[in-house]
Amino acid sequence: MPLSEDLRALQERVVGELVAAHDYYTNTKFAWRIVQKVIDSNTKFTIRNKITGSVTDQTALSTHIEEYIQKELAEATFQQFISTFESFFFDFLRLWLTAYPRSLGGKKVDVKFILDAPDKDAILQHAIGKELNEVMYERPSAWFAYLDEKVKLDCPSADEIERLAEAKAARDVLVHNRGVVGKSYALKAGRCARYQEGDRMDIAEPYHRETWDLLQKVVADLSAAGLAKAPLAV
């Protein structure tokens, strides 16, 4: 498939995933609000979790609903947004490097792999995978510097990259440190850092929405810029 078609398909898939994730957040939030209304109307019920042994009635569930919305749901969907964007970014790079393999430069591949590989494409994908794996462990600023080196797209802006770095740092706090801000958050988040060491990371809804908006924009901008540079489909 021509690069332009691949880029369009990638954009469509990722936008669909981001929209679905936000719809899940909104619909689930309202599902819980509806449950709260049911409880408020004096409906009684008991939930028995056979796996954990927990027994929860309407009174107990009511005490958890806000936490489930504001913390569990917000954090889980926020992490999903970031993961979806990371997947988009590296798929974008993979497509570009596949279309323009000479931009890999002097990347080395083991002779054993070459001899075992079924075809040239497998060797290329292996080399691209190794390259992107190294980039993935760098900070977002390095990701975009790498992208810029391979193809000058003039987006996202420096401010957007800093905001992306902070969002990723926030995700890392949730995933790797049980939501407690450590030293590395400030280093990763830079001037966009919102918390200090020891604070509890909070994904309040405005920030949740701003991050989603930012990711949508960066996906749209990178896709448009990539399509403008990609050869047209024949």
């Binding site: 609000r33 309040a204 809804e205 405005p206």
Partner: peptide, 23 residues
């Protein structure tokens, strides 16, 4: 504060929304 972006109506009642306060 921030205001929920959505409001909800139950059983044809008035639409309500949530106003949230920060930590």
């Amino acid at each position: 504060y921030w205001v929920d972006e959505h409001s909800i109506s139950f059983n044809d009642g008035p639409f309500t929304t949530i106003v949230h306060f920060y930590r």
